[in-house]
Design a protein around this nucleic acid. Structure first.
Lengths: 121, 121
DNA sequence: GATACCAGTATCACAGAGTATACCAACATG
DNA sequence: CATGTTGGTATACTCTGTGATACTGGTATC
């Protein structure tokens, strides 16, 4: 584990109440099955609705629509409509959106290692 | 962001399908409102049932009971019963449990920064 | 004797997360 | 002219995660 990060995040003396509240806040924001996969997809360069939809196995049009609306309202991303014909709709990440990069990266790492462990059994 | 980690986790050329699957696997394992707070609590030294319960704001006896059972079955933690009177039950983290440390740490970090941003408005 | 703590289980109930399917208008492609 | 794509909405449904409340049996405390 990254000792520097530990020092940065975990104040001394430890304030466990604050830590668990922070953890619960984060879970509240990115909880659910789809938020992180969507953020990941958009940060990976997917912009169009169907493009994002196709990049996430299992998601339905409805869930994607709902989550995108929600995330736009919370300024996690920007929705841009270009009046071409037919209209072009593009979703792009806000800076805020990039702040999840570390979390996502570590979760990808964990998922890969997890799969590796399962294979070894 | 940690460039070394990026190189380690994100293979070149990128395999986005593998990445999103890894991400979804991780969400599947630690998804829900309580798993990470419980892991965090136990890794922070809480061992007894009521001790863990008190350390997590909002959790009910029932949810804690269910999640602990689930996590014991998945070898995320060990349940030890000492035949004192009344019996002493202790939950302790497995090595596996510690593998979430990075994710939790980054989520705590994000939560703290999030709260800071809200205060600044 | 009343109350409180421990480690839970039982029962009931609900909201909302998530699924399935169909549909729309406008355009492009074969 | 039939089909497919885009960017969604509408409707109906399931289901499970979560919550509220109550209870148990043994012990310790007041």
């Amino acid at each position: 584990m990254d000792e520097q990060l530990v020092k940065e995040v975990l104040s001394e003396p430890r304030n466990q109440k604050e830590e668990i509240q922070a953890l619960q806040d984060t879970i509240y924001v990115i909880g659910g099955k789809w938020k992180l996969p969507i953020i990941n997809s958009i940060c990976n360069g997917n912009r169009r609705f169907r493009e994002i939809e196709r990049s996430i196995p299992g998601i339905t049009t409805r869930m994607l629509s709902r989550e995108l609306k929600d995330m736009e309202a919370n300024k996690l991303l920007k929705r841009t409509v270009t009046p071409t014909s037919p209209v072009t709709v593009e979703y792009s990440p806000s800076d805020y959106c990039h702040s999840f990069a570390d979390i996502i990266l570590h979760m990808i790492k964990w998922g890969k290692e997890h799969r590796q462990r399962l294979k070894e059994d």
